[in-house]
């Protein structure tokens, strides 16, 4: 088994004393791999991600990073949001630099770092634009660059591509894979799209709904070293999408 960077042990979340959102979630996240959390809406996948991010305190169980219990948010985990969570009154550069600003990095330093990542996500030339001047895809690139600047080992992504249109989503997925080839990060990725999970992830965690708990873990073992365009044509890819759909079907209703 790979080196495990993060694990959740028997995590449970109960809202308002009676609504069980998550129950007994024990999950190992291998270093440098992409783990997708997949499930129907309302199954608690975003809750699980927020527990991992330290934004929601679990009612029971623990989150451990390198076998050390962690409470609350920390610099080792950076979040990418479904609705981008950009500050509307700040430029792309200011938004990307926000994480560093919060850490007290000097202005020159943080702008230098930010510019590198703005280039890396393909936003060069848009540094001084405001979020409302950008397309959805570009906004999420800004969110991604912001998460990259703080140089966390773990990248947490909450349905990051669900608010953009299909074509843009494919482009962003491809670019994410390209980026991860250079950036060696551990990624935990929440999605409701089976195709997206199979396409991107090394490990797909399927959650069943109400209460959310792990139903199954699938390891796609898809070859991503070659041409990225070819992934969707691999027989293994098509097979897996079908397989996961037939097991997920029982939870959708």
């Amino acid at each position: 088994m790979d080196d495990i960077i993060l694990k959740t042990e028997d995590v449970g979340v109960i809202y308002d004393r009676s609504i069980v959102a998550l129950e007994n979630v024990s999950l190992n996240v291998p270093t440098g791999k992409l783990t997708a959390i997949l499930g129907p809406s309302g199954c608690g996948k975003t809750t699980l991600l927020k527990v991992i991010a330290g934004l929601i305190e679990p009612s029971s169980g623990t989150v451990k990073i390198r076998d050390k219990e962690t409470i609350g948010p920390g610099p080792d985990r950076a979040l990418v949001f479904q609705d981008f969570a950009l500050l509307p009154w700040a430029t792309v550069l200011q938004n990307v630099a926000f994480g560093l600003r919060a850490q007290g990095v000097s202005k020159r330093e943080r702008e230098k770092t930010s510019l590198t990542y703005i280039k890396e996500v393909g936003l060069s030339g848009f540094e001084d634009k405001y979020p409302h001047q950008l397309s959805g895809g570009m906004r999420q690139r800004t969110g991604l660059a912001r998460a990259l600047t703080v140089n966390s080992e773990i990248l947490l992504m909450d349905e990051p591509f669900s608010a953009v249109d299909e074509q843009m989503r494919r482009k962003l997925q491809e670019d994410l894979l390209e980026l991860l080839k250079i950036e060696n990060k551990t990624v935990i990725f929440v999605t409701h799209s089976i195709e997206e999970a199979v396409y991107l992830a090394d490990q797909v965690v399927i959650l069943s709904g109400r209460p959310g708990s792990i139903a199954e873990i699938v390891y796609p073992e898809i070859d991503r070293l070659g041409e990225i365009d070819l992934i969707r044509r691999q027989p293994r890819y098509v097979e897996l999408v079908d397989e996961i759909w037939s097991s997920l079907k029982s939870y959708v209703e």
Partner: peptide, 14 residues
């Protein structure tokens, strides 16, 4: 104010 903006701030340790 959107929850996600506040969560973003917490995530970056504000």
């Amino acid at each position: 104010v959107k929850d996600s903006l506040v969560e973003m701030g917490r995530n970056f340790g504000c």
